Amino acid sequence: MENLAYYDGKVGTVDEVTIPFNDRSHFFGDGVYEATMGANGVPYLVEDHLDRFYSSARALGIVIPSGKDELKQLLFDLLAKVDGDTHFVYWQVTRGVAMRDHVYGSDMEGKLWVLIRPQALGSIRTPVNVTVTEDKRFEYGHVKTLNLLPAVLYSQMAHDRDACETILHRNGVVTECSHSNVSILKDGVFYSHPNDEHILRGIAKTHMIQACYRLGIPVIERAFTLDQLFDADEIMISSSSKFCLPVRSIDGQAVAGRDPENLNALQDELIREFRDYTGSNALD
C-alpha cells in the first residue's frame, strides 16, 4: 500500500478510512498519541513508546481497547502492508464516540487509530538553526495529548523564521521544543530538563541519556536557563525522527560546536543502537 490508515478495525488508505462524526477527538482533542519511525519492518523502540502511550491514556482516564502485546503485533502487521523501507508510524486512542458533551460516560471504550506512511530518515549529523520563545502551554506537558495547537503555532513560528525548531522557556528556564526535547553538553557533562509536568518524557532523550551512561559521559537531569543554553558547548534536539540533531545557531546567532568529540561519540552510539534494533542502515 502507498499509505495506511486504521480506525477501530477498519483498514484502508488515508483517503478510504472514515471517522464517525461524534468521535470525541473532533470536538475536544480528547485522546493521546504516540509516534516512531519504522525501518526494515520494525517500529523503532516500540516497547518504550507503548509504555508511554498507556501511561498517557491512564493519566486522562482513557481506556485503550487492546493490551500492549496485541497492539504491538498490530503495528508490526500494519507496517508490513506499506510500501517503502522507512516509515512514519503513528497511533492514537480517543476516548470514544458519543454525542457532544463535555462530561463523558465511565463505560466508554477508546477508539484506536493508526497512520503509516513512507518517510525517509535524514542525517543526524547536519547542524540546524532554531528559534526561541516563551512556553505558554498548559500544565499537561508530560502527557502526549492530541491537543497540539500550541505545537502547531510554535512549529509554524520556526518555519516562518527559517528554523528547524522552536525552543521554549518559562521565565528564562528552558523546557523543551515544539515537538522535540532539547539537551546540552557543557564541560563534558550532559544536561537535560527533568521529567515533570512541563515536558514530555522523550523516548529519544531517554536513550540519549542511556547512551551517555554507556559512554561514560556524566548526566545531570536539571533545568537550565537561556543563558546556559547560549553558553553550551553543544546543543542537541531529540525526537523519534531526530535522535541527536546538533544546533549551530539560535535566531541567527552562532552557538555551540565546541565539543565535537562527545557529540560524535553520542551520535555514533545512537546510530549503532538503531541499526542493532531494526537491522536497517537507513540512519546516518
Rank of each mutant, 00 (worst) to 15 (best):
I116D: 13
L149W: 04
S155T: 14
K136F: 02
P127I: 03
F230D: 09
V152Q: 07
V247W: 13
V132E: 12
I237V: 12
G141P: 15
R248S: 12
V130R: 01
H142K: 11
F224G: 06
L245Y: 05
R137F: 07
V143I: 15
D196P: 03
E165G: 02
A163T: 03
A158Q: 02
D196V: 10
D233R: 02
Y140E: 08
N171S: 15
L245R: 12
D251W: 11
L148T: 10
R201N: 14
I237G: 00
V128G: 10
H198A: 11
D233V: 05
Y213D: 14
D160R: 06
I199Y: 15
I237S: 04
T206P: 07
A223M: 04
M108E: 14
C164W: 13
R201C: 06
E221R: 05
D233S: 10
I116L: 04
S178H: 01
P118M: 08
H207M: 08
V247R: 03
P218T: 07
A204G: 06
H142W: 15
E176I: 05
E139I: 05
K136W: 12
R201A: 15
L226F: 10
P150C: 08
H207N: 08
R117G: 01
C177L: 11
V152D: 06
D233E: 13
I237K: 03
N171Y: 12
V143D: 14
N181G: 06
I116E: 06
L226R: 07
E134T: 07
I220Y: 14
D231T: 06
V173G: 01
C177I: 13
D196K: 08
D160Q: 07
N171I: 10
R137E: 05
E134C: 04
R137T: 05
I184M: 09
K242W: 10
Y140R: 10
I199A: 14
D135G: 04
I167E: 00
E109N: 13
R161G: 07
E176T: 03
S180D: 07
E139H: 00
Q210L: 07
I209E: 06
G216D: 07
D187R: 09
K186F: 08
D187M: 08
H198T: 09
R117A: 15
L245I: 01
C212V: 06
T175F: 10
K144F: 15
D160V: 00
S178N: 09
G216T: 01
A211W: 12
W113T: 12
H142G: 11
G252N: 04
Q210W: 10
T133K: 01
A151I: 14
F190C: 15
T145K: 06
G202Y: 00
P246F: 14
S240T: 13
T131Q: 12
R137Q: 01
D187W: 13
V182P: 02
Q228E: 15
V182W: 03
